[in-house]
């Protein structure tokens, strides 16, 4: 294994040990005995969150998953925070990454506004509904649904294919009316790529479900956006990834307002989490430039699956 690969494995192992420490040493006691958690100094939790989210940021970049997808199941599974606060923070974590990337992706002409806007209208409207549903349902039900969703994401990560430039024989009527098409230059080859989409209705209907899940679980939704935009609607992979990230900045903002309005966004949790995950992802990008993630990706998927199972068993009361 390369030196950087070893560093990646080290970061993931560190993440695992810290969350397990938090889970065994504090979370368990915190959930069962409030005195134990409250006896810990106040600064311990922000500090622990900062460390865990930093490692999580590195793991997210090396593992090819969104920060929000890792954040919600791991923090809700192993820390003694109520799921509502974790989801509120998770949305802001996903939002921070999207806002950091959005301007650059637009400037590079990779995120397509014409593709993003109709999708964003639907996804963000239903993200608001999803957030309201998530906050209205009993926590255990949400926890079970979160566990199932996380396990589903793991399966999706293992089996989903990607198509760099899908074959779209003919744009459908709705995408033609909305003028959802574009051109971009592939920097590696200099090739000009003309793209258009099809199956727009089906895609928009799926974004109803994606919006609801994004708002309900606070996961971000890149894991679902990209396959729908790329494999179903036929947008090139590069455009799909960029538009998906830009889309998150709209969808997650809508849902985040609901959590904010309900008092589910605690600065003490959000600030260290944002700093940690952003710093971690930037370090991850540096690591990625010198080596392929390889084994780290499998470990991250395994870790995500473990967190999904933990969420499921927690919801089921085991």
């Amino acid at each position: 294994m390369t030196k950087t690969g070893k560093q990646g494995v080290f970061f993931v192992a560190l993440l695992l040990s810290v969350v397990l420490l938090a889970g065994n040493g504090y979370a368990g006691e915190g959930l069962m005995a409030a005195d134990s958690a409250s006896s810990a100094p106040w600064w311990m939790w922000p500090l622990l969150l900062l460390v865990v989210t930093f490692v999580m940021g590195v793991a997210a970049v090396l593992g090819g998953v969104g920060g929000g997808v890792l954040f919600v199941p791991i923090i809700s599974g192993f820390f003694p925070f109520h799921l509502d606060f974790v989801r509120g923070a998770g949305l802001l974590v996903a939002l921070a990454g999207a806002l950091a990337a959005g301007p650059g992706l637009l400037k590079m002409n990779l995120a397509s506004l014409r593709l993003a806007m109709p999708v964003a209208l639907i996804a963000s409207s239903f993200a608001i509904i999803g957030a309201m549903i998530g906050l209205a349902l009993p926590t255990q039900i949400v926890q079970i649904a979160l566990g199932v969703t996380i396990l589903g994401i793991c399966v999706l990560m293992l089996v989903a294919k990607k198509s760099v430039v899908p074959d779209v024989p003919k744009a459908d009527n709705i995408s033609s009316v909305l003028r959802i098409y574009g051109v971009y230059q592939e920097a590696s080859t200099g090739e000009i790529i003309d793209w258009k989409i099809h199956r727009t209705w089906q895609g928009l209907v799926l974004f109803i479900a994606i919006g609801i899940m994004a708002g309900m679980f606070g996961l971000g939704a890149g894991w679902a956006n990209v396959p729908v935009l790329n494999l179903l609607m036929g947008a090139p992979l590069k455009i799909s990834v960029a538009t998906s990230k830009f889309l998150l900045s709209i969808t997650d903002t809508s849902a985040a307002w609901i959590y904010l309005n309900k008092g589910c966004v605690i600065p003490m949790m959000v600030v260290p989490s944002l700093i940690g995950i952003m710093a971690g992802s930037f370090v991850g990008v540096r690591l990625l430039k010198v080596a392929k993630p390889g084994l780290v990706r499998w470990i991250v998927i395994g870790m995500l699956g473990f967190a999904g199972l933990k969420a499921l068993t927690k919801g089921l009361g085991f």
Binding site: G66, L105, M157, G222, V241, L288
Partner: peptide
């Protein structure tokens, strides 16, 4: 901004 863009592609598994 450049780091954000790189992180976006990496987190989608399309580095």
């Amino acid at each position: 901004m450049a780091l954000g863009v790189s992180a976006a592609f990496a987190e989608a598994g399309t580095e």
